[in-house]
Computed example of a mutant assay.
Amino acid sequence: MSHSSEAPDAGAGSISVMLVEDDERVRSRFGRQIAAAQGLALACAVSSAGEALDWLAEHPVNVLLVDLGLPDRSGIEVIQACTRLQPACEIMVITMFGDEGTMMQAFTAGASGYLLKDGSEEDLAAHIHNLRNGGAPMSPIIARQLLRRLAPPTASGEARAADGVVPLSPKESEVLGLVARGFSYPEVGRLLGVSVNTVHTHARNIYGKLNVSSKTEAVYEARQLGWIKG
């Protein structure tokens, strides 16, 4: 089920925004943030790539916010179509997918910003203004991946080494492994037979050792170090 709405009056100078997000709760939350922000106008909010492509073919818009995991086809196709149909439109991805391959596909297709749904979207209005003013808003983990991709290899031919990284304890490894499989902290606590406060303590230790600030970053760093497979 989609939700679509035309902005009744974008107002002179307002940035018109199209939102493509299949999760109804997320779409409503983002839509409220955009509609309430000064200088922004929600032009359209839809739940599928097909609806987005039909709308883009008929309506000009300043900014496109698009998820990648859409029910009918990839958000990458929406980005490609928008780039072709409306080359002046700025495009920002907001997604759960933070792997390097997906990220590079999005940027190659025409995206200029990339936010993960891990808290980076809390300042959504500011990110949209930044994007429209020539910036490239990115979650920290995405920016880090880009820097690593551009960095020259070391003498050993490796992009990075694990030297200097404090290893995780067996219990911390268990916690991180379960988090990587999608379990919440309360669920991890039940599976390991410990309190959720103990799980939070392990998580803080993991974050400190990996120098990260979110679950997504922790899992990514652990995979880069070979501590988690897949």
Rank of each mutant, 00 (worst) to 15 (best):
S5N: 15
L131G: 00
R160T: 08
K117M: 10
S139E: 00
A49S: 15
A155P: 04
L131D: 01
V61I: 09
H200V: 02
M92E: 03
E221P: 08
L64A: 04
Q224T: 10
S48V: 10
M92G: 01
K209D: 08
T95D: 04
L178C: 02
T83R: 12
M96Y: 11
V188Y: 01
T201F: 13
D99C: 04
Q145R: 10
P170C: 00
I128Q: 04
S120P: 11
D72F: 07
E172K: 11
G208N: 13
Y114G: 12
W55R: 15
A36K: 14
A7P: 06
K117E: 10
M138W: 09
H200S: 03
S184H: 11
P186K: 06
P60D: 11
A10R: 15
L53K: 15
P170T: 01
G182Q: 13
V26I: 12
G208Y: 09
S74H: 00
L56Y: 14
A155R: 05
G157Y: 12
L168G: 02
A111H: 05
R144N: 02
S28Q: 10
R160A: 10
A159N: 09
A159T: 13
G119K: 10
D163L: 04
L70A: 11
H59L: 14
R32L: 15
T95V: 01
H129A: 02
V194S: 05
Q80K: 09
P137I: 08
F30P: 07
S173L: 11
E77D: 11
T95L: 04
A52W: 12
C44H: 15
D9H: 06
S169R: 05
A203R: 09
E24A: 15
